[in-house]
Amino acid sequence: MNRHLLGLEYCSREEIESIIQTGFSFKEVLSRPIPKVPTLRGKTIVNLFFENSTRTRISFELAQKRLSADTVNFSVAGSSVAKGESLRDTIRNIEAMKIDMVVVRHKSPGVPCFLTECTDAVIINAGDGLHEHPTQGLLDIMTLQEKLGSVEGLKVVIVGDILHSRVARSNIYGLQKLGAKVALCGPPTLIPVKAEQWGVEIFYDIGDAIRWGDVLNILRIQLERQSAGLFPSRREYTQRFGVTLEKLRRVDKEITIMHPGPINRGLELEHDLADSEFSVILDQVTNGVALRMAVLYLKSGVPAQE
C-alpha cells in the first residue's frame, strides 16, 4: 500500500479494493448509536485548503472527528500564504507543530506530490488542480458497488467538462482498474487532447452516451468556461449535453445518475432529476464520509519508508 494518497493512477487494484471495502465497514460504524470510534486518538491532521471547498472539507473534517483525530483547519484567506509565504515554508511550519497527516487541496497540480518531498507527514490529496481528486473517485466507485454490486463490466459515462476535471481523471483510473468501461461525453473543446490514451469511448451527443452507458457521472459546468470561448452559451450546452428525464426515458433500461456536486440545476442536470429514483447523489455524500474515514484509517498506519 502506498503511504500517501496522491491519485488513483498510482494505486493498485488491490489498494483501491481494500480502501473501498474498509469504507463499507466504516459505513456500519456511522450507523451506530454513537457513530464515533477512538481509533485515531492522539493523531493530528491538518486540512490545508488553498482553494475554496465546503463539501470536501466538511466531509474530511467529519471523517476525522468520527475517528477521534485532532484536526486543524488552514484556509488561505487571512493566512500567511496570502502574505507571500511559500508553500514549502508553510508546510515546514505546520510540520514543526508535529502533524501526522495533511489533507491538501490546491489549484496547482502536483502540490500533494511536492509536499511529500518537504514533510514526513502522510499526504492525502483532496484535489490538485486539474489532476486528481482520488477520494471522490473512490467514493463514486463505492457508491456504484453499493447500488449495483460490482463495477466489473459496468459502462460509466463521464459527462461534461472533462478537460478541467480532476474528478474525471480519478474516476477514469479507478473505474478502469476495477474492470469498468469508461466513456467521456462533452463538447470537443472540453475533452482533453489525447484522451484516447485512456482507452475510453468519446461521445459528442448525450443521447448516444445514454444509449451506451449504465451510469452517467455528470460534472459541474463552470460558467467561466463559456467566457473563455469553450462553448457558445448556457442554452446550447443544456440542449446538447444537459441530462433530462425525457432523454433518459427514451432508452428502455435503468440508468444511474451521479454528480460530485455542487449541482447547477437546470444546466447540466434537469431540475428534479437530482432528487429522482435515478439519482445516487446523496448516497455519494454519505459514502464520502465513510470512504474518507477508511482512507485516513488505512493511511495512518503506513510507516515511512525505511
Binding site: M1, S18, Q21, T22, S25, F26, E28, V29, V37, P38, T39, L40, G42, K43, Y297, L298, K299, S300, G301, V302, P303
Partner: peptide
C-alpha cells in the same frame, strides 16, 4: 463484534489492520 478500531496498539503497528464485520 470487530474491535480493530478500539485497539490500544493501533499507533504501534506497522500497518493498519483490515477491519472485519461488526453486525
Amino acid at each position: 463484534l470487530d474491535v480493530t478500531l478500539y485497539r490500544d496498539d493501533i499507533n504501534h503497528r506497522a500497518e493498519s489492520l483490515q477491519m472485519q464485520v461488526t453486525d
